[in-house]
Write a protein that binds this DNA or RNA. Structure first.
Lengths: 148, 148
DNA sequence: CCGAAATAGTTGTGATCGCAACCAATCTTC
DNA sequence: GAAGATTGGTTGCGATCACAACTATTTCGG
């Protein structure tokens, strides 16, 4: 085991706190959207579509952005379709393609939930950080993301 | 919607990159332990036990540290038990209690995999960050963790 | 001490999600 | 323009995990 350098205390601290806290943080965010009948998965799906032109997105692109497999997205759509937050629209030009389109009902729900979710993100994370920490977290994950 | 303050660009960047990159990062770490027949869940379980006195831990404490429900841990144990990486040891004093104890086989596996996993953490995350960013990530998640 | 409450762990059930296999539509190549 | 490759999406299946209900053991109040 001529192995790689071990992690020094700062590195170990960053790594461990990041890993364990991330799980807790996600559960806390989940708790805050549950009263609206949403999971974080649903919320992120709605939010993602809402930012696309015409509030619609190809299934394919949606899956990529949500980091879901195609089959994973198909199953997640079941829920938001039956709740009529999202409608399925078949593309006329390329008949393989389906769009996920936010309904008025979905849009209204999102407008209601987004401020609550935003407040959660502040309360649980952002508001505890100094300006420097916010910037450092941003640049750190930007670098990690680019390297992936 | 007299709502809370929106996120400014730095805050939004930190939040979004953190959320999306975390998913990708976890998948990449998963890929690196898979060749050893391990999931990250298994790895974290083995690592957690290995650091406890006598390399054994009460099921209960293990579940808390791994952020698993009790039933979740019971099911996860199935895998590591059948692979004989961990043994189940009943407490004689309190017969409700079971310990998860790392076997020699499990310990040998962990010694082999740990350096590879460590190298992954460096390659995928730590080595891309400046010293200041490492410290900032550590202190940021420490604050978030304490607030939870 | 004895019954009630608390604690440790497992099992039934249902949700989520990935992989492999599949079907359908489009594009490519000769 | 037809065969083969590629792309978009769904379905069968298995893995993971949480919640609720359950059993077994221990602890506590009176």
């Amino acid at each position: 085991m001529a192995g790689p350098r071990w992690l020094d205390p700062d590195e170990m601290k960053a790594w461990r706190l990041y890993i364990t806290t991330s799980v807790d943080l996600m559960k806390a965010l989940e708790d805050d959207v549950r009263p609206f009948g949403l999971t974080m998965g649903d919320y992120q799906l709605l939010a993602m579509i809402s930012e696309a032109p015409d509030r619609r997105l190809r299934m394919c692109d949606l899956a990529d952005q949500l980091r879901l497999s195609r089959s994973g997205l198909t199953r997640r759509m079941d829920g938001v379709l039956s709740n009529e937050w999202v409608a399925r629209v078949q593309d006329q030009a390329d008949r393989r393609v389906a769009y996920a389109e936010l309904t008025t009902k979905g849009w209204n729900l999102l407008r209601k939930v987004a401020p609550i979710h935003l407040a959660s993100v502040r309360r649980l994370m952002i508001d505890h950080l100094s300006r420097a920490e916010v910037k450092a977290v941003g640049s750190a994950f930007e670098k990690i993301s680019k390297a992936l």
